Amino acid sequence: MFPVIYSDEFLLHDTGYFHPEKPGRLTAIKTALEAAPWANQLDWRLPTPVEARSPLPLVEMIHDRDYLNQIRRLANRGGGFIDGETAVSPRSYEVALLAVNAWIDGVDFTMTSGQPCFVLARPPGHHAVADEGMGFCLLSNAAIAAYYALEQGLDRVCILDWDVHHGNGTQAIVETHPNIRFCSLHESPQYPGTGHPAETGFHQNVLNLPMAPGSTIEDYQPLFEKKVVPFLNEFQPDLLIVSAGYDANQADPLAGLSLKPEDYRLFTEYCLGVTQRIVFGLEGGYDFKALGNSVVETIAACL
């Protein structure tokens, strides 16, 4: 059985009907997974409730309290925007904490079982820096999960970000830690304008691979084989966290790369060649059909 960590509560982060990062993203993925021929092999798991395990002490290790209070105040006032595109609704603060719990649950499962899992949660997180949310992101889920894994006794954690946008928040939070490696493949030029190859981290622990607009799997594959996999393998990670964004699909409206859903099966196979201990967590992806099909391909490779 393959665990998918999901709750309908993630739909309560209400960004508005016209916002690209909306609840329908998750329902589209869930519908696609339930229609897959191996749907009976999925183990749908609820995340640990915030009341049962508050992630706040861990979150406060990563994010400034003033910023967290800003999200909470916005939610309590009925919602608003952190910036022009990053929305907060009345339930967003608690839903964001639940999303952190889901990523932590993924780490717990993978550490115990040695097997991969998928965290189907929102809001996404890889653009959120310590003191500011941006790019639809509120809390830095992948970075928090990596620090949590180290707190649980793991020695080395890698984060691979294949979202079309550079994970500037994740990089900013982990690049100072010698026991975390971060690798990102992302379109350039593209939001948020970071992720230059010269950004290598404080311990040569960052690898940025910008992709030209229009790039296809033929451009990605040699980079995975010659750059990404060696960078991850050299570190011999105890855990691999994948910021699994699917907006590099050709069908996606917010970017300009030309991947197909089936290409994510190949990405996943490369990851499984590094380690079976993988936590896949949802980031971007805004064409519902391509998004759902891409997650299906990711999990199919694991099965």
Score class of each variant (00 low, 15 high):
190 Q>W: 12
81 F>R: 15
95 V>P: 14
197 P>S: 01
95 V>Y: 01
18 F>A: 05
216 T>G: 10
73 R>I: 09
143 A>W: 05
130 A>S: 10
189 P>T: 12
157 V>R: 01
273 G>H: 13
208 N>Y: 05
244 A>M: 11
273 G>C: 08
143 A>H: 02
188 S>A: 08
35 A>H: 12
177 H>E: 10
43 D>M: 13
152 Q>G: 02
8 D>L: 15
229 V>W: 02
22 K>M: 04
189 P>E: 08
290 A>Y: 03
284 G>V: 01
144 I>P: 10
218 E>S: 07
20 P>A: 00
138 L>A: 02
171 Q>M: 14
49 P>W: 07
273 G>R: 11
189 P>Q: 11
170 T>V: 12
111 M>H: 13
297 E>Y: 08
252 D>Q: 10
164 V>A: 09
103 W>N: 12
240 L>T: 01
147 Y>K: 02
42 L>P: 06
7 S>I: 10
155 D>K: 11
161 D>K: 03
218 E>K: 09
289 K>H: 06
12 L>F: 08
215 S>M: 00
26 L>N: 03
225 E>G: 06
222 P>F: 10
261 P>I: 04
265 R>M: 12
2 F>G: 05
181 R>T: 07
226 K>D: 12
187 E>R: 15
237 P>I: 01
87 A>S: 15
26 L>V: 00
207 L>N: 04
277 R>V: 00
264 Y>K: 04
193 G>M: 11
82 I>E: 10
119 V>P: 14
230 P>T: 04
262 E>V: 14
229 V>T: 08
249 N>C: 14
169 G>M: 08
22 K>Q: 06
224 F>R: 00
30 K>Q: 05
295 V>P: 08
196 H>P: 15
179 N>V: 06
104 I>E: 00
261 P>S: 03
174 V>W: 08
69 N>W: 10
99 A>G: 12
209 L>Y: 04
115 Q>G: 13
283 E>P: 13
186 H>K: 04
297 E>T: 00
26 L>T: 00
82 I>N: 11
95 V>R: 06
173 I>A: 06
65 R>Q: 03
279 V>D: 01
296 V>N: 04
184 S>R: 15
119 V>E: 14
177 H>N: 10
83 D>K: 14
100 V>A: 04
223 L>S: 11
47 P>T: 09
258 S>E: 14
106 G>V: 06
124 P>H: 08
30 K>Y: 08
165 H>K: 03
256 G>Q: 12
216 T>I: 01
107 V>E: 00
100 V>F: 07
176 T>S: 13
276 Q>Y: 13
77 R>L: 12
262 E>L: 15
140 S>R: 04
215 S>E: 03
58 L>N: 03
209 L>H: 00
128 A>R: 06
42 L>I: 14
1 M>P: 12
87 A>V: 15
254 L>S: 02
19 H>R: 05
9 E>V: 11
238 D>R: 07
105 D>G: 06
45 R>G: 00
175 E>L: 09
41 Q>P: 14
255 A>D: 11
93 Y>V: 14
11 L>D: 03
221 Q>K: 08
229 V>Y: 01
